[in-house]
Design a protein around this nucleic acid. Structure first.
Lengths: 226, 226
DNA sequence: CGGGACTTTGACACCTCTCAACTCTCGTGG
DNA sequence: CCACGAGAGTTGAGAGGTGTCAAAGTCCCG
């Protein structure tokens, strides 16, 4: 999941394109169950599989020697994660909410010899990924803390929000510092900005990890206008 | 070209992986000459071709209604640009330094029916692109102005620097505001930071668009340590 | 020589980071 | 049952970096 920008061609922020995927032939596709806290792969590991998130939430991170960390993306159901570079993963993938992933052998990504449909699905997913990341650049490079957080909540709401009466509820399985490292902020700024939205009655919190969006229009205004 | 981070697997910042590309069969590949200022494609255009930069420099940008602009990347020789989303470009591509591009029909990207080698070249380029963009996230989200500019100069130096005595010379075909929009800064901050490096004798300027790197180690320190 | 775009520099404001303290939750163990 | 500690989240004060606004300088090209 990336923070994307709605435009004339793709008006709905956060909503991924529904990629057609014919039901896996005789469901030969291997799945794997994951528990919270588990590490699916590390940077530098040989990439034997590319994964599609079926349920749960994954966190993809990239770390420098000095401890600086960037959360590259969150893997939500439907997301394809683990695109390799030269046969190796270049991020770490941790499970922040238990779930399952489909496992696709990496060679299906590189060659169409064995399964044309799967190869096409994976390469198209890679192209989609590039487009989403480009939008994310804009967010990282050009938005303020308020705009970043508002965009993030909207993206999550569109992607994984559940109705709650007239409102929408968002579960945040990630920590404040995960959000901060995703948006290029500090935990303190994230926390402060959440509080600000709360005091302005734009959102409400059930607990620190459950947001209820009270004023969606207000969020949209903050995220995208100006 | 992205600003990437050297690590144990890919130690050299900015240096792209040399992607094998067997000489185009009987050189059937169409080329196209481009002049400075020309627009190769716009956001939303139907993507009939994917391009490989042969010479010159391209600028890929993404713009919002309110005028906010993000330079997504600069296309240097060897870069593949114009990856489509749903058959359309999602950035604008302008020529900032005249040159030529190779034109690959888009279907070679989607299907391996006609030219397996070309298909593989393009999809592998897309995977490479994802990896480079992930590094770029780190730069945008976590670096200061000085670190950003130093990293940028190093990337350019490794990619397109020419020897000048014991030093390296870097041509900057893009404007200060292009650099700013690429690094997530303002033109003023870019200009100020360039001046700071100049006053500290880390770099020298022939003119505003020609940098001579005097103290590469100093740049590296600024870019990557702490 | 003049005009316009680009670049540089300055002053100032403000946003975000840093450092620090406090709260809250939760689990452990006396 | 309560004390305690650990970890996460929140809040506050202050500093500093970067954006904003403005003006001057520079270069290019007619």
């Amino acid at each position: 999941m990336y923070v994307t920008v709605p435009n004339e061609f793709f008006p709905q922020a956060g909503k991924p394109i529904y990629r057609q995927r014919q039901s896996d032939k005789q469901s030969r596709v291997k799945e794997r169950a994951l528990i919270t806290g588990q590490t699916l792969f590390r940077e530098g590991d040989r990439a034997d599989y590319v994964y599609e998130v079926v349920s749960g939430v994954m966190r993809l991170t990239r770390v420098l020697e000095n401890g600086q960390r960037q959360v590259i993306s969150f893997g939500y159901p439907g997301d394809v994660i683990g695109f390799p570079r030269n046969g190796r993963y270049h991020t770490e993938c941790d499970v922040i909410s238990a779930g399952t992933v489909k496992m696709y052998r990496r060679d299906a990504l590189h060659s169409c010899a064995t399964d044309v449909a799967l190869h096409k699905f994976l390469t198209e997913s890679a192209l989609e990924e590039i487009a989403l990341m480009q939008d994310h650049f804009l967010m990282l490079g050009r938005k303020t803390a308020k705009e970043k957080l508002a965009s993030f909540l909207i993206a999550l709401m569109n992607r994984a929000g559940t109705p709650l009466g007239q409102y929408k509820k968002i579960k945040l399985p990630m920590s404040r510092s995960d959000i901060a490292d995703f948006l290029g902020l500090t935990t303190e700024t994230v926390s402060r900005t959440v509080s600000e939205f709360r005091h302005k009655n734009i959102i409400a919190l059930d607990d620190a990890h459950t947001v209820i969006v009270l004023e969606e229009n207000e969020l949209l205004k903050i995220a995208y206008s100006n």
